[in-house]
Amino acid sequence: MKDYQSLVDITLNKLKLSIEFLEITKDLKNKANEEIFEDVDAKLDERQEIIQIIQLLDSEFLTLFEKLKQEEDFEKNIVNYPKLSDYITHIKDNFRQAYEIDQLILPILEIELENVKKNIKKSRNEAIVSEKYAQESIKKMTGASFGIFIDEMK
């Protein structure tokens, strides 16, 4: 019976993490809608940490579940833990809601990513043009290449 309670405890931990994941996702949506993209990256990192913990819990759960499933009275004993099913239902619902929010904010983030790419490309082109023409202008005015030499005397 201790193993069954462990299943419930693992699932309760996963439920708490799924609630936290959903809250972070809602906050992520607000940051994306307000175009506060600096905070988006931090929120994505927080979600990734939760996902990693949940993966460990899932592994632990599956190992224990498979062990218990081999017992002859498994189906009779598992019904004594109705919270297990309730927790799993709530977990699925939390992740479903998070997924739906992700589908709403993904286009916003993709647009911002494209804007950043364009700005980087534009900055690179401006730097190349500026460097090329600045040296050529100086060369035309002075008739020679221009450079600055600093001689530090001690």
Rank of each mutant, 00 (worst) to 15 (best):
T63A: 13
I78T: 14
L15N: 13
L57K: 09
L68P: 01
L12Y: 09
A98P: 00
E35T: 11
R47M: 05
D9N: 06
L15Y: 13
Q97I: 02
T11C: 05
L44R: 02
I53C: 00
Q70W: 02
D86K: 15
L44G: 02
S85D: 15
I50C: 01
D39W: 00
F61H: 09
F95M: 10
I53M: 04
D27M: 09
L84M: 14
Q55C: 10
Y81K: 14
D58F: 03
L62K: 10
N33C: 09
E49W: 02
E38V: 08
A42Y: 07
E23P: 06
V79Y: 10
F61N: 02
L28D: 08
L28Q: 08
K76Q: 13
E49I: 06
T25P: 02
E23R: 10
R96E: 14
L7H: 04
T11H: 02
N77T: 09
F65D: 01
E35K: 09
T89W: 11
E20D: 00
L84G: 11
L15W: 12
E49H: 08
A42Q: 09
F37K: 00
L64P: 07
E38C: 00
N30K: 15
L56Q: 12
V8M: 10
N94T: 12
D102F: 06
T11P: 01
E71A: 02
K69H: 08
T25F: 04
L84C: 12
D102E: 13
I50S: 00
E71H: 03
N80I: 09
I91Y: 00
K14M: 11
K31W: 12
A42F: 01
Y81H: 13
I36T: 10
D58Y: 03
A42N: 06
N13P: 03
D45A: 08
Q97T: 06
S85Y: 15
E72M: 03
R47P: 08
L44K: 04
L56P: 05
D93T: 12
R96Q: 15
Y87R: 08
L84R: 10
T25E: 08
K26T: 01
D73N: 14
D27L: 12
N13E: 12
K83Q: 15
I54Y: 05
Q48N: 03
D93F: 09
S85P: 15
Q70F: 05
Q48T: 05
D39E: 03
S18H: 07
V40P: 05
I54C: 10
L68A: 06
F95A: 06
Q52A: 11
I54V: 15
E34Y: 13
E60Y: 09
N13T: 04
L15H: 09
L62C: 11
E100S: 11
L28Y: 08
L12K: 01
Y81E: 11
I24E: 11
N77M: 08
E20A: 03
K31Y: 11
Q52V: 07
L62F: 15
K29V: 02
L84P: 07
Y87T: 04
D9L: 07
I36D: 14
S59K: 09
D73L: 10
E20H: 03
E71V: 01
H90C: 15
R47N: 07
K92Q: 14
I50H: 02
I88G: 10
I91A: 05
E71Y: 01
L56R: 10
D27H: 12
T89E: 11
Y99F: 04
L12P: 01
